[in-house]
Write a protein that binds this DNA or RNA. Structure first.
Lengths: 228, 228
DNA sequence: CCAAAAGTGTTGGAACTACACCCATGA
DNA sequence: TCATGGGTGTAGTTCCAACACTTTTGG
């Protein structure tokens, strides 16, 4: 036991909620725990923060180790803190305080989730979750609430992060579907189109989707928020 | 050194931003540090979380110890988490991760702040702060941003907490001034009155202010958010 | 030619903004 | 009677919600 302190210290972990959209539903990455406590139970990827790394860096490192998602695969994607969770008995081993982060991965890159070592890693639809270890159900529901708050009316700048769910080149129908899923309510097609180009600078890529047996859709790229 | 662990553990502290409104300006409680590091520097009240207490409970306990504000004086007031701060070198002594909380105290109860022991405790206007210890300036600015977000247009339910700045019985002019200060912009008197009674249930206490050398103002009490 | 999704404007209501005068009190 | 802050309504604008048909492609 080489690490000694004059006063007791809690352990600190960082957990990550990885959101994406798969087949029209919000999904998250869970891993099956290989060790006690909660062995074989599903949990958020995460683990102990090292002494010389920032909380966010620790979260990214654990995400790479446990879910095979490397920090450079997440370059440019939102990665934000949800909060700290520290009920004294949330972990049966010892006092563990966890700091939760969330990230949003594009719907065309969900395959970047890969099992490493023996760990089982899997996407789960948010509305069909298995029982979760620790207080991860609470953390997840807070993260879901944070996501929903980003797209509340009139908070257009916070909503920018939600575009991370979309591929680099997206159709307006895809964009609408993403906002519908995050908000949890259906939107009117024409109103959505008016709203998106009143609020965002989107570049028309002058390309069309192909292959669908229907009229092709124009592809766009997000440039940024409109000034004003 | 009686507390030993197999792996290194950081220390965890809880800090509290106590906001109030004094003479028409947002203020916060700071304490002058009695010990190194940052001895004699001003800092947020806070301290080490004990192993058997919740983060929020630890924050409240430290607030009582360092600023003389007891938990039962805060009963019924908002007390919410701002976030966790854990840059590896934010504390020169050892790795210290802090979880920041904020609370809003009514403008007629600012006197509950009292020095204890040798600690100097004082209200500071937010726009005239001394240099702060650690990364407390960052934390404070995040807390200020969280407060501002509560009163963004259309988020009426989050704005409820802001009423905590007001006395139990308040005039509409006081309420308007509180919202102006939190938002950082002037509001139109008639529009504000329409808005407040479109959105909140406020009870007319059938009493008036006295003593001002002008027309007395009607006193109200917040009942809650209007349904719908 | 049929199925499927893309694309496109107008109208009515609600919410927000701007704006100016009289009232009740204490000194 | 004067200084001070309290109290009140209307009109223009902007924003939001509801709503249906035509177009383009692949099979």
């Amino acid at each position: 036991m080489p690490y000694s302190y004059e006063y007791p210290h809690p352990a600190v972990t960082a957990d990550v909620i990885v959101f994406s959209i798969i087949e029209g539903r919000l999904n998250v990455v869970l891993i099956r725990r290989a060790a006690e406590p909660f062995k074989d139970c599903w949990a958020l990827p995460g683990g102990f923060v090292q002494m010389d790394e920032d909380l966010k860096a620790g979260a990214r490192r654990e995400l790479a180790e446990e879910a095979g998602i490397s920090p450079d695969q997440l370059a440019g994607l939102p990665f934000f803190q949800i909060g700290a969770y520290g009920h004294p008995d949330r972990d049966p081993r010892e006092r563990v305080i966890t700091v939760a982060f969330a990230t949003l991965v594009p719907m065309d890159r969900v395959s970047l989730v890969a099992s490493t070592d023996a760990a089982e890693v899997q996407w789960f639809p948010l509305d069909d979750l298995p029982p979760l270890a620790f207080d991860h159900a609470t953390i997840l529901s807070d993260a879901r609430a944070a996501l929903a708050r980003m797209v509340e009316t009139r908070l257009t700048d916070e909503a920018t992060a939600v575009f991370a769910f979309l591929p680099e080149a997206f159709t307006l129908a895809q964009a609408q579907s993403v906002f519908e899923i995050v908000k949890g309510q259906d939107l009117d097609k024409r109103n959505f189109r008016k709203w998106i180009d009143a609020n965002w600078e989107i570049e028309d890529l002058k390309r069309k989707t192909t292959g669908g047996r229907h009229r092709p859709a124009a592809l766009f790229r997000l440039v940024g928020l409109k000034a004003g």
